[in-house]
């Protein structure tokens, strides 16, 4: 058999493999996955730009989180690989999410909740960034475009939630889907790579009974309906940032 023929067969084979995988992706993507316990996922084809038709958000029911959200934080850590910097001290290590315990000074009523980037509609970090590296994507996800980040840390000064971290040392073997590097600022990006591929954020998958993920712009989404039903509070609502991450039970 000639070399050309071999190559042709190989190509066909690879195509077929690709086809199978593509079909899976398509099935996952084009049909809006019906609401499960954790909400809806994206149906956008990979070659179409995001639009502002959707605004991704989530509702975290603190009352249903038995661990205060520690499992969610762990899932985030595993997904993105943050927090293991060898040379940085505890205050310098990166934190995309953390569990905060809140106790009212007067009533002593206490609860715990996971705090990460709240994906504000009016994000202070985006306003202050000199280069536009700190950005809000059309679908409401706030992230750092590390290609433009000069590491000035002004966004960290501006964020009311201390959601952002600065990478204090050189990193190796990052996750291929979550680039992170020295001298830039980073934060929760709602697992943007997973959302684009029609999956739920890692933290949502880790706590499917307590978190609903979905489209805040769609009044018929499970998220919107639940929010309308049981409500969802913002941290520092007084700042009027209209956060995309809402909490029940705080």
């Amino acid at each position: 058999m000639s070399q050309n023929r071999v190559d042709e067969y190989r190509r066909k084979f690879v195509m077929a493999l690709g086809g199978t995988a593509a079909a899976v992706t398509v099935a996952q993507g084009f049909i809006l996955r019906e609401a499960n316990a954790a909400g809806e996922v994206s149906s956008r084809p990979l070659d179409k730009a995001v639009t502002s038709d959707k605004r991704w958000g989530m509702l975290i029911d603190v009352t249903k989180l038995t661990d205060g959200g520690a499992g969610m934080v762990e899932a985030c850590k595993k997904e993105h690989g943050w927090g293991n910097e060898a040379d940085s001290d505890e205050a310098q290590k990166t934190h995309w999410a953390r569990v905060v315990k809140v106790t009212d000074k007067l009533t002593k009523n206490s609860f715990s909740l996971p705090v990460m980037c709240q994906h504000c509609e009016q994000p202070p970090c985006v306003d202050v960034c000199p280069t536009g590296a700190s950005m809000k994507r059309a679908d409401g996800i706030v992230q750092v475009n590390k290609h433009l980040c000069i590491g000035c840390r002004y966004c960290m000064m501006a964020c009311p939630y201390k959601a952002r971290s600065f990478v204090h040392e050189a990193l190796h073997d990052q996750k291929p889907y979550s680039p992170r590097g020295m001298g830039t600022v980073e934060a929760c990006n709602m697992c943007i790579h997973r959302i684009d591929n029609g999956q739920l954020p890692a933290c949502v998958e880790a706590a499917p009974d307590a978190v609903i993920f979905g489209d805040l712009n769609d009044p018929n989404s499970t998220l919107s309906k639940t929010l309308k039903d049981i409500g969802g509070k913002q941290i520092r609502a007084d700042l009027n940032l209209n956060t995309g991450v809402r909490y029940h039970g705080i």
């Binding site: 066909k12 195509m15 690709g18 086809g19 593509a22 084809p45 990979l46």
Partner: peptide, 19 residues
């Protein structure tokens, strides 16, 4: 490689026969 949309390997995927 070639497992999702937009990659050149997937062009004409539907016509590809099972190997």
């Amino acid at each position: 490689v070639g497992s999702a949309e937009g990659h050149h390997f997937t062009q004409g995927v539907t016509a590809a026969a099972e190997p």
